[in-house]
């Protein structure tokens, strides 16, 4: 197993940054020895969250951190933006709800893809923290 790499912060300003961020997420998880299914799930989750940033807030950032201890290792991704915020979190987390004509699967789906999911939102700061974990 590799030692944790330093945290990586990726500015999310355009559609290209979505690709950069999910690619980075996949690389970090591959480096820590997560299987392909886990890598794909994390990359897809990052793709969803960063796409939301572009779509609803215009720009934001994505921070990828690796952690390792005696019990195992984990990757934490924090996606932040300073957009208008989500007025009704419960509704946004319900399947099939979308304000933009999408499938309404992004947030609830992302929550099912990862081991840990935490969201907070107010006007001016929306932060979603997700992580996947693997026992040693």
């Amino acid at each position: 197993m590799n030692e944790p790499a330093p945290a990586e912060r990726i500015a999310i300003r355009s559609h290209n940054d979505i690709v950069t961020a999910r690619h980075a997420a996949r690389e970090h998880s591959a480096r820590l020895g997560f299987g392909r299914a886990y890598q794909t799930r994390l990359a897809t989750a990052v793709s969803e969250l960063t796409r939301n940033v572009i779509q609803y807030a215009g720009e934001g950032s994505c921070l990828i951190e690796e952690h390792a201890d005696e019990d195992g290792c984990s990757i934490r991704v924090s996606v932040e933006d300073h957009g208008p915020g989500i007025p009704d979190l419960a509704l946004a987390l319900a399947d099939g709800f979308s304000t933009s004509g999408g499938l309404g699967a992004g947030l609830p789906g992302t929550r099912r893809l990862v081991d840990h999911f935490q969201i907070s939102s107010e006007p001016g700061l929306t932060r979603v923290v997700i992580s996947i974990r693997k026992a040693r």
Binding site: R36, T40, D95
Partner: peptide, 10 residues
């Protein structure tokens, strides 16, 4: 893994 991800996403 793509299939698994899609079903998880719903």
């Amino acid at each position: 893994e793509g299939a698994q991800t899609l079903t998880k996403l719903g």
